[in-house]
Design a protein around this nucleic acid. Sequence first.
DNA 1: AAGACTTATACTCAACATCAGTATAATAGA
DNA 2: TCTATTATACTGATGTTGAGTATAAGTCTT
Lengths: 329, 329
Amino acid sequence: MSDTLGPTQSKAHIRSVSHPSQQGTAVDLIALLVAVTSGDPRVLTIQDQHALPSGPFELAHRSLQSGLRAWVERQTRLPLGYVEQLYTFADRDRTGTADQRIISISYLGLTREQAEAGQYEASWRSWYGYFPWEDHRLGVLPMEKRLRSGLATWTAAAADRATRSDRRQRAAMLFGFDGHAWNEELVLQRYELLYEARQIPEALRGDRLLAPAANTATASADPMILDHRRILATGIARLRAKIKYRPVVFELMPDTFTLLQLQRCVEALAGKLVHKPNFRRLIEQQELVEDTGETSQETGGRPAKLFRFRRAVLAERAIAGTKLPISGA
Amino acid sequence: MSDTLGPTQSKAHIRSVSHPSQQGTAVDLIALLVAVTSGDPRVLTIQDQHALPSGPFELAHRSLQSGLRAWVERQTRLPLGYVEQLYTFADRDRTGTADQRIISISYLGLTREQAEAGQYEASWRSWYGYFPWEDHRLGVLPMEKRLRSGLATWTAAAADRATRSDRRQRAAMLFGFDGHAWNEELVLQRYELLYEARQIPEALRGDRLLAPAANTATASADPMILDHRRILATGIARLRAKIKYRPVVFELMPDTFTLLQLQRCVEALAGKLVHKPNFRRLIEQQELVEDTGETSQETGGRPAKLFRFRRAVLAERAIAGTKLPISGA
DNA sequence: AAGACTTATACTCAACATCAGTATAATAGA
DNA sequence: TCTATTATACTGATGTTGAGTATAAGTCTT
């Protein structure tokens, strides 16, 4: 414990009252809406799938969150089960213009894909289209080789030896090279490393020395405008962490489902496979679901029991928390 | 998995470009600066200790975070070791005026109390002054009885039976009544329950039917302006969660320290005591610290080895994470 | 100087959660 | 009827966690 000084007081400098409104400050809400459909985690996109939907900050609402909820439900008619604030950005390089600054408050919302969504120029796209290196369900990545070589080039390009070693180690830890374990939660860190290594399309914008990266590791990834890929990375990371201790997966499931469907949903989000017996044990031990008495025959094998989420746990454990096993297959 | 529709497209409604600047929208940065001194977690406050320092949002900086950092270091000369964004608020009831809305972006910063802080009309105050019910280091709370009776009154005041049962259970789970375990991370939920139960001073503002709560359970708690107590609750919760898996405690420690000093710091933050042998085991197992070769004689007993934080772990485990045991004593 | 007291440090053990593998049951389709 | 596929149930090894105990090395008191 640092034993310096106790409370001190003297001249004023720091203000606590509200500061005058800034000129040219606009406030945007950005919605990252997630659904899981046929084993794919999908996000709602607009404008040729290059952007996340965004809406205005409205004074009328009680809070930011209720404002976002109202706006999304009005525009898309999607029932938003779970909403949480992600992050507030105001980076200068977002817009390009230096005098006008946009503050973006981003939110994550969980829902289910519905027919109604078709009313708008919006579409659901797999988030692995934007982050192909985040899907480890099939074992090794198809792009693994290009990824490694791209990062190796970046590593070798460092000025001094220490930096090279540092880069190599960071890349290895984040991407699971050299015997390091893959950690599915480090989505944002991987994004940032790839950005730094100029392996992400938008990292090259405004850089006239380099041609639009034709052979970067992520050339196969879909494009996104502004910093929307960063917001998506933040959301994926948050959701992957959250499903482990909060029963939010059920917001993405239909009313009744089999245990394997639930498992596939978790695997879709986590981007990796899980051990079936252990997954079932944890789900049942924690009494997260209840038997509906019905069975599904659409499995191709032995019919599976249909379960339903025990809504009661939301009251019981709004607090206590739950556990989902995201471990090895 | 919900098997509804795949990607869909049609008429436009949702916008992705930036929206026009709102009239009357001001943006504030609020800094929650934390230090631990002589076994007390302290926050920097101003204006008779009723407010957190806040500063303007400046266009000049690269990012919000760097803007906050520059502003704090300029004003207080405190070196900010660790900074993280907490939450963005824009609740209507914050200010009272309906037409002018303030957006508050709050940040948590870790530092050490220093003599230089005395240049300003600012002082370090124990956060348990604002949250007396959050300190469980001495076993039972002095205010325990008043807290229980205040919550019991609120429980009894519910209209129907189901609500009463619900309130009782929530209170029991959050505050550890009826054999429930105390969970130190639920700071924000406890604050919200007390607010709902009108046991927090500021919950009664603008309520003319009730006199300024003289005998609420939290009458002994220091006052705070606006929603600053909520921001503080958010910060305490975040920090209590964070120290369990990231080596951020060391930002609050002097250069060299004994293991017991480190333990006391963790206990101060967590608001509960930990098991000494287990604490030491985890610290040493994980190689978070290294021996300086020196010892401290100021312990009152056998001299203790002085340790130093292994800065290398920041590079090694910027990613991997660490574990601190916050369990029973 | 002896003894009490305080703190540091090292070790042990039981309970529990987690990881991984295996065996059996019930259906569809060839 | 056989095979493939999925559901469901059980078992053992391993690691983590919580809690207790014993000894070492100083200070303080009398």
